[in-house]
């Protein structure tokens, strides 16, 4: 699998797939799973990332999502964007079906 958290990554966010329908979700600053990457909380530094992942995985997390993990994001002007092609595609939808996935609603 193309991997997520690059060693030495400065900025990271937490993502998972929602249990009921597999939808890609992100952990947000107000402590819930949201569908849009733009609402994801961004952790700066390794300690902040660990703390973020811990918050995203309370005792009952399995009742809501599958397999939360950290992935690297990059600063892009005043915004952030996923570092890998994989996470870019997860955040948007299939590049071969622009009518499907999150990008369809955008």
């Amino acid at each position: 699998m193309a991997q997520h958290a690059a060693k030495g990554a400065r900025f990271q966010a937490v993502t998972a797939n929602r249990l009921s329908d597999g939808e890609v979700v992100y952990w947000s600053a107000d402590n819930r799973w949201v569908e849009g990457f733009t609402e994801a909380e961004i952790a700066d530094g390794a300690d902040a990332a660990d703390a973020l992942l811990a918050r995203a995985m309370p005792a009952d997390f399995e009742a809501h999502v599958l397999e939360p993990y950290l992935f690297e994001v990059l600063e892009d002007g005043s915004f952030y964007k996923p570092a890998s092609v994989r996470e870019t595609i997860r955040a948007a939808g299939p590049t071969v079906r622009l009518d499907l996935g999150k990008q369809a609603g955008a």
Binding site: D21, E67, R90, P94, G101
Partner: peptide, 28 residues
């Protein structure tokens, strides 16, 4: 039982795979 939280993903995954259900990037 999975949706209600009674089964963990570790318990459920082999069961769903036996029924042809995988998790991909955007959905099942």
């Amino acid at each position: 039982r999975r949706v209600s939280g009674a089964l963990t993903e570790d318990q459920f995954k082999p069961l769903r795979l036996m029924n042809g259900v995988y998790l991909q990037l955007h959905a099942y």
